[in-house]
């Protein structure tokens, strides 16, 4: 299985490459990719430097152009595809049907990967993209259980990449419009969910308040760790209950599932987090590289009694390391695990 790591900037890209990523993915400095953050992403010169650095070390580079262009922005998105092609990326990660069509026509030799934002959740949906645009690979949404992923993998017409670690999207990606309902930006329109420009923090008598475009997302008591106000991870009221009505602030980690993912034929695991620091990318990549190498040597896993069977006992150490890097210091198997639903 291939390890695909995030590159939010050049230092992060270099860390990922140095720590043994098989591929890295990046986006340009504009609304054409799903991680539009201030100070993040690549201009053309940095991208060229990054691609050269990766290629010299045998690491592939994917370019994410995975938001949905509207008529007013079409030229910019098409230009981003042309730019990535000219830079010599190994694959384009795309979501929009029109843009996939454009890329297939203009740059047929550059592999097309269907982004998680493309929101394909069944093998029939994957067949649609494969027949129409010849996609080579698809990234699966985080809404499927491991059994569903297994069913899908059995019949998939293309290679599959699944999320292994990082932020957990609870909604089917590519069809979540919650962010643009509260603010004027969404993942689809401009690559932003709960955008930082709309966030306000305020110390009040009732505690630290986090707001998104004025809407109170959460309120934290003294000593409580105050998380970023991602709108689906706040505490809200339903009838007389106050709780994390949609999702707790936790991260996804599928370390436990690696042997299963390999067995069912998943081609690549993806680390989320282009918005995270180079130090984070370095640590996460190192752990996952070790885990995948152990998997290759058949030394990763648990026996029937749940005992750690890695010869070095490394599994527990990796779990602990990843736990420290996670949102709320907690990880979950998310939808891969049926009980979570």
């Amino acid at each position: 299985m291939e390890l695909v790591c995030p590159a939010g900037n050049l230092p992060a890209l270099k860390q990922a490459v140095d720590q043994g990523a098989d591929a890295v993915y990046f986006g340009f400095k504009d609304a054409t990719n799903a991680r539009q953050f201030i100070g993040l992403n690549f201009n053309e010169a940095r991208a060229r430097e990054g691609i050269e650095y990766a290629h010299q070390r045998g690491c592939r580079v994917f370019c994410a152009i995975n938001t949905y262009p509207q008529p007013a922005g079409w030229e910019n998105w098409a230009a981003a595809v042309d730019k990535a092609a000219a830079l010599g990326v190994d694959a384009l990660i795309l979501a929009d049907i029109g843009l996939l069509d454009y890329a297939a026509e203009r740059h047929p030799k550059i592999a097309r990967h269907l982004s998680v934002q493309g929101s394909a959740t069944s093998h029939e949906a994957l067949s649609f993209y494969q027949r129409q645009f010849g996609i080579r690979r698809a990234v699966l949404p985080r809404v499927l259980s491991i059994t569903q992923v297994e069913d899908l993998a059995r019949q998939s017409p293309v290679e599959l990449e699944v999320f292994a670690f990082g932020s957990l999207c609870i909604m089917a990606e590519g069809r979540c419009y919650l962010s643009s309902y509260l603010t004027d930006e969404s993942p689809n329109t401009c690559g932003a969910c709960s955008p930082a420009k709309a966030v306000r923090w305020q110390e009040t008598d009732q505690g630290m308040e986090s707001r998104l475009n004025g809407v109170l997302i959460d309120r934290f008591a003294e000593g409580e760790k105050a998380g970023y106000p991602t709108l689906c991870k706040g505490r809200f009221r339903v009838e007389d209950q106050l709780y994390h009505a949609i999702e707790e602030p936790v991260s996804l980690s599928t370390l436990d599932l690696l042997p299963k993912l390999q067995e069912i034929g998943i081609s690549a695991v993806k680390i989320e987090g282009r918005q995270r620091s180079p130090a984070y990318v370095e640590k996460v990549t190192r752990v996952w590289r070790q885990a995948l190498d152990a998997l290759g040597h058949n030394t990763l896993g648990h026996d029937k009694l749940g005992q750690d069977t890695t010869t070095t006992g490394a599994m527990a150490r990796w779990q602990a390391q990843l736990g420290q890097l996670s949102e709320g210091s907690m990880t979950t198997l998310g939808a891969y695990h049926r009980k979570w639903k």
Binding site: Y68, P69, D96, I97, Y177, N188
Partner: peptide
């Protein structure tokens, strides 16, 4: 909930049999 955000998407789906489309809500 079918993401038709631009003219090229619309034209391609029309070729496949699309007769009417609903503007995505956002």
């Amino acid at each position: 909930s079918v993401n038709i955000y631009n003219a090229r998407t619309l034209a391609l789906l029309h070729k496949l049999g699309l007769q009417r489309w609903c503007l995505p809500v956002e």
